[in-house]
């Protein structure tokens, strides 16, 4: 299990290859990368991500440990950034390794649902004219009930 909270960009391809190379006898690797998305008509200058240093690492570890206990996983990777990000930059990624694809897919989906609303990150969208905190979505809260 590897949990990384960092300001710097990362290369999801390099991370995924390194994660894959580390596994032995895992038949399925699933990964998800979240990317900063611009507004439909453009204009997003930065996505500013604030986090609660200390609690962030604890919360991510707890979520990943929960995933390891619920599914048959060989390994889990979680990378999440904070700070000022520009459109197209990767925000975060998760990867799961399992003997079989069902566990790998479901665990990755579970990790994403919990990262959305149980990891202490807050996103703010900055344009040249304004800045606004991204509101949490009821859908994201409802998604937790699936598990």
């Amino acid at each position: 299990m590897r949990i990384v909270v960092q300001k710097l960009p990362f290369d999801s391809g390099v991370e995924l290859n390194a994660f894959t190379a580390k596994q032995s006898n895992m038949g399925a690797i699933v990964s998800f990368t979240g990317v900063v998305r611009d507004f439909p008509n453009g204009g997003l200058q930065y996505m500013d991500i604030e986090h609660y240093a200390g609690m962030t690492e604890k919360a991510l570890e707890a979520i990943a440990t929960d995933a390891m206990s619920r599914w048959d996983l060989g390994d889990v990777l979680v990378i999440h950034r904070y700070g000022m990000l520009t459109p197209q930059e990767p925000i975060m990624m998760v990867a799961t390794a399992s003997k079989h694809r069902k566990d790998a897919f479901e665990a990755a989906d579970f990790l994403m649902d919990f990262l959305k609303s149980r990891a202490p990150f807050w996103k703010k969208e900055q344009t040249s004219a304004s800045h606004e905190w991204v509101a949490s979505k009821q859908d994201d809260e409802d998604a937790l009930k699936r598990w």
């Binding site: 609660y52 999440h80 975060m92 990262l115 959305k116 149980r118 990891a119 202490p120 949490s136 809260e141």
Partner: peptide
């Protein structure tokens, strides 16, 4: 003790 709005990670 920390106070904050609902989280928006991921």
């Amino acid at each position: 003790v920390a106070f904050f709005p609902p989280m928006t990670g991921g």
